[in-house]
Design a binder for these strands. Structure first.
Length: 291
DNA sequence: GAGCCGTGGCT
DNA sequence: TAGCCAAGGCT
C-alpha cells in the first residue's frame, strides 16, 4: 500500500525543506514516479537523497544511467529510474528544464501515465485534476457504484463519475488528496474501517451489505524463481560493484543458465545493463537508444 | 487487455 | 516458512 503524496508533502513542508522539495513540481514528479509501486516508507530516504543530488531536471539529465540506477537502489522496477532519467532529458529538451504544467505535456514524458500526470497537476500545481490511483478508484467504486472493487483498468465511466465529484476550484487538489488518503488509510482493500469513515452514510457498498466482487482478482505470479528475481539478482551485482564485472561473476549470480541468459538479455534490451569487451558487463555509462 | 516489470513486509 | 499482497506504466 502507498500513502498519499499529499501527506508526505505536508510532512516534508513542516520539516522545512524548500527548493526542489515536495513543493516543487520536480520534487512531486520524482516522488510520484517512485511511489508508483513502492511504499512511501521505502521511498522517503531515496527521494531525499535523489533530490539533494539532482535538485532539477537538468541536473538529473546530466547524470549517467549508472549513477541513476545506483541511486534508485532497491526501490524495485528499475526501469522506472531510466524512464525518470529520460523524462528529465525530455523536460530539458522540450520545456527548457521546467516541469510542464499541462496534462498532455506531462503524459508525453516517459514513465508518466494518466495517474502520475494528474497527480503532478493536482499536488504540484494545485489545480483540480483526476489522479485515479487504486485507492481513489476503490473509494469511488464502493461509495458511488456499490461495488467492492473497481474494474481491472480505468474506464471512461469512472472518469466521468469522478469528474462529477471533483471540485472545480482551488479545492480540487485538496479533494483529490483527501479521497486518496481515505482510500489508503480508511477504505482499505481488505479491512475497511467504515466506523471511522466520514462518508460511510452515503456509501452504496455499505448500504447494500458489502457484496463481494463478481470476479476474483487476478493472482500475482510467483516471484521466487521468476525472471524478475533473476533480473534483480544480476542487477544487484552490478549495482553493488563499483565498476564492470566479469561474465563469471554474472554466472554466479543465478544458477539456471538459460534463465540467466534470458534475464541478462532483457536487462541489456532495457538499457539497464551494458555488455562490454572481453565478456564483461556494467551499468550503462551513457544513455541507451532504447531508453 | 492481459502480462510483464522488483522488493520487502506481513501473516 | 512459504505464500500473499501492494499496483502504475508500458507493450
Amino acid at each position: 500500500m502507498r500513502n498519499s503524496p499529499s501527506q508526505t508533502a505536508e510532512t516534508r513542508a513542516q520539516t522545512g525543506e524548500t527548493r526542489a522539495s515536495a513543493h516543487s513540481a520536480w520534487g512531486v514528479l520524482v516522488s510520484e514516479v517512485m511511489l508508483q509501486q513502492t511504499p512511501v516508507a521505502r521511498v522517503e530516504p531515496v527521494w531525499r537523497a535523489w533530490i539533494d543530488r539532482w535538485p532539477t531536471p537538468a541536473a538529473l539529465a546530466a547524470a549517467s544511467p549508472a549513477q541513476v540506477i545506483r541511486a534508485w537502489g532497491r526501490l524495485g522496477y528499475p526501469r522506472r529510474a531510466l524512464r525518470l532519467h529520460a523524462a528529465a532529458a525530455a523536460i530539458v529538451e522540450r520545456h527548457g528544464g521546467v516541469v510542464p504544467d499541462d496534462i498532455e505535456s506531462l503524459r508525453a514524458l516517459p514513465g508518466i501515465g494518466e495517474y502520475t500526470a494528474g497527480a503532478v497537476i493536482a499536488f504540484a500545481f494545485g489545480r483540480p485534476a483526476l489522479a485515479l490511483d487504486t485507492n481513489v478508484r476503490r473509494v469511488l467504486a464502493r461509495h458511488d457504484a456499490g461495488r467492492a472493487r473497481p474494474p481491472g483498468s480505468v474506464t471512461a465511466g469512472e472518469r466521468e463519475r469522478a469528474l462529477e465529484f471533483l471540485p472545480t476550484g482551488v479545492d480540487g487538489a485538496t479533494w483529490m488528496a483527501a479521497i486518496m488518503e481515505l482510500g489508503a488509510l480508511v477504505c482499505t482493500a481488505r479491512s475497511p474501517r467504515c466506523e471511522v469513515c466520514p462518508i460511510a452514510a452515503g456509501c452504496r457498498w455499505r448500504a447494500s451489505g458489502y457484496p463481494e466482487a463478481e470476479k476474483a482478482a487476478r493472482r500475482q505470479p510467483r516471484y521466487t524463481g521468476s525472471d524478475r528475481q533473476a533480473r534483480g539478482a544480476i542487477l544487484a551485482i552490478l549495482r553493488d560493484c563499483a565498476g564492470p564485472v566479469t561474465g563469471r561473476r554474472i554466472e554466479m549470480s543465478w544458477p539456471d543458465a538459460v534463465q540467466r541468459d534470458r534475464a541478462l538479455d532483457s536487462l541489456v534490451a532495457d538499457g539497464l545493463v551494458e555488455p562490454l569487451p572481453r565478456g564483461r558487463y556494467g551499468l550503462p555509462a551513457s544513455a541507451s537508444p532504447h531508453g
